[in-house]
Design a protein around this nucleic acid. Structure first.
Lengths: 195, 195
DNA sequence: AGTCGATCCAACAAAGCAGTTGGCTAGAGG
DNA sequence: CCTCTAGCCAACTGCTTTGTTGGATCGACT
């Protein structure tokens, strides 16, 4: 295999990630992906099959990245949530991909949903460990809610602007929300532990 | 004006709402909207201009509905959040429309964003009143976060299934999450008040 | 009944799009 | 130097989709 193949594949995946994050599955244009990558369109079909399968490749790759980058830190679950927030601020594309996927598949199962179960179970285990409790439906509810809070601002920029003010994307506002997030997380963890 | 006009318009808006909620702006098909409504496609262009403007009409209408249906109840802010949750469970289309819009416009302002500011300010006022505090950025942060938690399950069904289990859409699981939501809300309100 | 104005619609035009094909190129092995 | 293979690409195909148009329809008013 010529050395260019891997590079070409990678360039396509990068371009596709940007395109899909911006426009979603229906809105993405295969021509545009090829153009961005500086590669011929036909390669997409040769490597990935079709548009939807390409989307899956992009998503799988992105989820792996998310899984390795955002880890459970020192011993503070609140810091973990803040890290999730930081990550989605820094790399909004990954969240957007997940949201496009959610809208596209709705309540139908997404491709290889099973594989995700294990990696989320691991995260849940870690989270519970740091809380000093056993993984349980309640802990899962809590983690799920907290991830939601951390992601909500990037998920709904219009609502954020309307409710938190037009400058809610400034550096200062971001630091402020981060602080809010940490307090919020601590409070909800404390209340769960005592019950 | 013939009496049918208003009816035709309404039928189109209903069909468009369903179509847009399901497929988003890029994925929606004008033909399909006309077909669902049992009306000729040309009427859409006569009444609404084009696909994107039709989307805006649908969204405006839906936001009004949301605003009138989900009101601040008795005196319990936690019950309000639970009501938001119930509403999004019962009418997921409205949330989906908002999410499609968020992805479509991203960080650019959405059409007539100003008008929304006032209605959200009213909600914030009500919320603060029930908390017995003045509206402030902190209260807004809290309300925004809580809306996020209430909406998160419908926003991310895949993540919900993966983290909370495949049956997370059952009636029982829903009641369970509702309970979690109320406790969660109470805890975060209590912690905000004391600080 | 006849005319007028507005609504409706089947068929059309033009552009955009996903996916294909057939030939080109470069490098490895003989 | 020739051949064979595997990646590469410009041009093309056929279908889908948005938006338009010219004539049919229907009710109101005279």
């Amino acid at each position: 295999m010529p050395p260019d193949t891997a590079r070409t594949r990678a360039k396509l995946l990068d371009a596709a990630r940007a395109e899909f994050a911006e426009h979603g599955i229906a809105g993405a244009r295969v021509d545009r992906i090829a153009l961005r990558a500086g590669v011929n369109k036909e390669r997409i079909y040769a490597y990935f099959g079709n548009k939807e399968q390409l989307f899956q490749h992009v998503l799988t790759e992105s989820l792996q990245e998310l899984n390795t980058v955002v880890t459970m830190p020192n011993d503070d679950p609140a810091e973990y949530i803040a890290q999730v927030y930081d990550f989605y601020c820094a790399r909004p594309e990954l969240l957007r991909l997940l949201v496009w996927e959610a809208l596209y598949y709705g309540h139908d199962p997404v491709p290889d949903e099973e594989r995700r179960v294990t990696s989320y179970a691991a995260k849940l285990q870690e989270f519970a460990d740091h809380l000093g409790v056993k993984p349980s439906p309640d802990v899962a509810q809590l983690l799920f809610s907290l991830i939601g809070v951390a992601a909500w601002q990037q998920t709904m920029p219009q609502m954020s602007r309307v409710l938190l003010g037009a400058d809610s994307e400034s550096e200062e506002a971001r630091a402020n929300r981060r602080k809010h997030l940490i307090e919020f997380t601590r409070a909800s963890i404390a209340s769960m532990k005592q019950s």
